[in-house]
Design a protein around this nucleic acid. Structure first.
Lengths: 204, 204, 204, 204
DNA sequence: CATGAATGAGATTTCATTCAT
DNA sequence: AATGAATGAAATCTCATTCAT
């Protein structure tokens, strides 16, 4: 029978592989990241990877699924005590930037490798991203209920603006070799986004 | 001596290859796009591609450089008659969406394949994108001069918000198989963006 | 000290593995039959197989050796009460077809997998087949002594004809997915074979 | 445009690969024959093989199809001038043995590798073998028409006996390292087979 | 200029076998 | 004696690039 320690060990090995994969894929891109390189980096044999993942694509998808899972979880936790749509939006921006600033490899992954033109991969990735995007939508809805955001805001468009802006800021940061202070931008971004959703005032 | 017709012919062949490359890469992604497939689609021999481009990477980079060139040119032309930063911003959004809506393959390319984690490619692509991004920055500067946008707006951030938002809207459209009316969104986006840059009012 | 029960158990496990191997190899062929699959089918761990057999090849060879052993034994028993070469030949054909008809997996093994071009395997398999072939030769010799078969029959050739014919009939049956009634052919085959060995009469 | 010489060259390369494949597969068996080894033996690069064949299985099947084609052709030619079923049967046996005696590698292939338990391969091989088997059947039918063979002979069984016997004789020869004179057996085999099909006389 | 057959390094994946538990 | 996770060598197949024609 499998003991508790054995189970822990197994879990650890799976995590080792995922960690190594983040690093290697971030450095080389998905296609250029060799499975054998990931194995070496993880300190396991090539074949061991296939005990935990069906194939290379499955490794990438699992990677996203698990990292996004804890990412969304963390945002939810930090958003919870904030009251009001604007404060919640601020928390989301802050955590998003902070989380990736602490994990540069993950940032490369989400900003660059998440974009896959291969149809099968793309649809799987979309599904993983969904919980995060719906989080944004909930904030917008709350803002509308609170009469802080304009009622006729297109929710889907708002979601795209929030995600697109943060995304682009992070991408710039990644491409600029991560030399600036990313979380420091959070406040300004939040204010600009909130401004966008209140834009109608300016037409009065 | 090389006649005019011969020169035209040569140019035509180069363009044929680029056009074929856009299609094939859009359908399969850069790594999965085979040079031989591009050659076939262009109606030339595999080896011919290497008479016009150094290698596959050079083909991709040239593709971006030339398509972005005419893209930026078109935006400049359409922006010129517009007066005021907001109008110019509106023109930029409109042309950006319109241009890609007419060229779905190009959209896939810029939205998905542009994102390369391979360092050498990434820096080359960044350089190509620069003229477009500086166009946005000029609009923001103009807006500030005109006292339409807040003076303390972070120009780089503003640029990232504009690009990021449009980019995300287009990506969603591409990933949703281009079924919605992309240019129809232009107005709403422009208003949201303008709102963001006037955000300070709301703090009064 | 090892008890009787323990010994039985051990024997049982070895037999379990052999039985599983017959099934798995018959379904996939020797090379495509995975050791881990055989282990699973036998209800033992992969490593356990190596406690009973040196390696995969040894497993295959042991399989043949043991199944052929009981096969030859059964033929001898059924042939014993028959008097005369023709009757004995009839018994051999009947038992051969009957035995395999009852054991389709074994039939696949002997008809298809027995044929190995790998030299080391081939010679081992030849040796295992020998007792069966010599059984045929004894019948032919008896027939000649009894003046039922022609004295100048080439014994080796006769042996090849008997074995080759039965073999081909079984192979056809296996390849045709075992849909016909195999033992029903026994009589006709026996008569044709007997006819072949009496062929000289027809030249009179 | 492809010239005659170029075409010839191409054909030659394909044949080189097939010839090398016969040798390598005969020595190692299909599964143990590495594509890279076949390539080296043929004096081409590994990838070149895939310009002429879809995959390893296709190479094996093509091999059988083309060699069996010329084999059947040769038998037909040599059988044609012979009159009477017995003479034709003699020609078939003679050519079959002669052809393989001259091509030991091919003999290994047809006798050993032809037997594949992999279902997809097996059915393809069956189809290739069909013309040869129907040749035998035609002879048996002719013999019955000529009243040389018994009318109630089972044609399918007769076919299996002819093929099985020759097959087993060749297999023995191959396994005995081809040290005996194979074609020398032709006459005796033919007489035994003819005897088998006339077996009814002996019951009068 | 143009061709496209040929190249061969390199990638993913499989699986017989081992060995610490 | 038994386990089964881990190993890593080896195999097939792909495809960017070259070069003789």
């Amino acid at each position: 029978m499998k003991g508790v320690r054995a189970l822990k060990k197994q879990k650890a090995k799976r995590q080792q592989i995922l960690d190594a994969a983040v690093r290697v894929i971030a450095e080389n891109g998905y296609y250029r990241a060799q499975v054998s390189r990931i194995a070496k980096e993880a300190g396991v044999a090539d074949g061991t990877i296939y005990l935990y993942f069906n194939n290379k694509e499955d490794l990438l998808v699992s990677l996203f699924a698990e990292t996004m899972g804890s990412f969304v979880e963390r945002i939810k936790v930090e958003m919870h005590p904030c009251t009001g749509a604007e404060a919640k939006l601020g928390a989301l921006v802050r955590v998003h930037l902070g989380h990736l600033a602490e994990r540069p490899h993950l940032a490369v992954l989400t900003q660059l490798e998440l974009r896959q033109s291969q149809a099968t991969l793309r649809s799987k990735i979309s599904k993983i991203l969904e919980p995060y995007l719906s989080l944004i939508e909930q904030i917008v809805e709350l803002g509308i209920e609170e009469h802080v955001f304009h009622a006729e805001i297109d929710k889907k468009l708002a979601r795209q603006m929030v995600f697109g802006t943060i995304d682009q800021v992070v991408t710039s940061w990644v491409m600029g070799n991560m030399e600036t202070d990313l979380p420091a931008q959070a406040n300004r971004i939040q204010r600009m986004l909130a401004g966008a959703f209140r834009y109608q005032n300016t037409f009065v």
